[in-house]
Design a protein around this nucleic acid. Structure first.
Lengths: 218, 218
DNA sequence: CAGATTTTGAGAGTTACTGTCATTTGACAG
DNA sequence: CTGTCAAATGACAGTAACTCTCAAAATCTG
């Protein structure tokens, strides 16, 4: 779905999609790639927090991670992507498709998001808050947030289409994906703005309740 | 609201915001600027249709419009902005604020969008279709669509905040603005994808009806 | 007409990103 | 362990979107 994102394909169906990603089925060559990827990201975040996002060049990041700039761009299509993309899209998609096909899609999203975010938080709470902070605070990143591939929008659209068993989404599906995606993004940003201290489950619940009510009271 | 967009402030309250913008209260200096702006845009669209968006450089556009590249960037903050921004934000905002404050916001959007788009179509149908076509077809533009300032999102957020008479929007307002904005964008894109032949009023109606129902049936 | 202000063009510089090619590194067979 | 092949890397050159600065030109004001 997202060409810029070398998503190490899941080898077998796991009980839990996120767990499967975290407990890597590590091949020898793959481990190095993963390590490089992590190192680049870590060094990047370090530099960002020291000098700011705009003032940090790709060259600096590459130098700090001890790779060439060429390599940087082999791992991340753009500088933005370093912050905006993650590796969990396939897991979220899988979780969405596991929901009963006749469940209202809004409800599926609600359930899946709450579940998955909780799991991610256990493993990477700190990094996740940092990322979201960056996104909220750097205009360029905030703008790039809805880039295709990194956004809930595309993800939801794929899920809706596949769930219906068709190849092209209907207009209603597109609208639903766009709006539910925007809502999810807003929820996560709000959560990050509060430093990750708010209860994300309650937040998602409140958000989707507003949508479900047809924006009653606004 | 949008620094990159020199929105010639409305001098006096007109009966109709859009009309007011079209019948310019032309100052001598302002006329030239407006003309340059139009020329640059027109030449840009011509080149885009001949060579494609990516293959057209800012330098080429500037040359065709007989201005320097420096001047290009004084009129448009980025190459994307040339396509993505328009001058109607203040008009739309004004129209939104003229609606009764107790009307459900979704209803206000529905009414205002239908009314304004119809008026714009009378004057610039051709250009509008071209623009929207470009946006749907060029990935970079589609991605940049939700950039702050050029999006319905920001506009709706401002309207909601001002209407409530507060300075900072509540979380519910942010969610509402994000979702209704995404829906509006989707509707216009769909309209453009059909070459502008669909009835935009019916389209907007259908879209917001879906939201109002809390996504019944999806 | 004179002076203040705004708009413009020229040019130099930065940086994100692309494409190519030779070198290195790990995977695998024998 | 060795030779072979594919994948990963680094060096390098190039493009194009911006940014900044400064002086010349056009427009407004009195």
């Amino acid at each position: 779905m997202n060409a810029s994102q070398p998503t190490a394909a899941l080898p077998d169906a796991p009980t839990n999609p996120v767990q499967a990603l975290l407990e890597a089925p590590l091949s020898l060559r793959e481990r190095k790639k993963l390590k490089t990827r992590q190192t680049v990201r870590r060094e990047a975040y370090r530099l960002f927090s020291e000098q700011g996002y705009e003032n940090t060049t790709v060259e600096q990041i590459a130098a700090a991670a001890e790779v060439s700039p060429s390599t940087f761009f082999r791992y991340f299509a753009t500088k933005e992507d370093l912050v905006l993309t993650d590796e969990y899209d396939p897991a979220i998609l899988a979780a969405l498709l596991e929901r009963p096909a006749d469940e209202p899609f809004l409800q599926s999203c609600r359930t899946v998001l709450i579940g998955l975010i909780h799991q991610l938080l256990e493993h990477e709470r700190r990094e996740m808050v940092t990322r979201m902070r960056l996104i909220t605070e750097v205009p360029a990143l905030r703008a790039g947030l809805s880039r295709s591939g990194s956004s809930p929008h595309e993800l939801f659209l794929t899920a809706l289409t596949r769930r219906a068993g068709v190849t092209e989404p209907t207009y209603d599906m597109r609208v639903t994906a766009a709006t539910l995606g925007a809502a999810a993004t807003e929820a996560v940003l709000q959560w990050a703005a509060g430093g990750g201290r708010e209860d994300i489950a309650e937040l998602v619940d409140r958000t989707y309740a507003l949508l479900e009510s047809g924006f009653a009271g606004v």
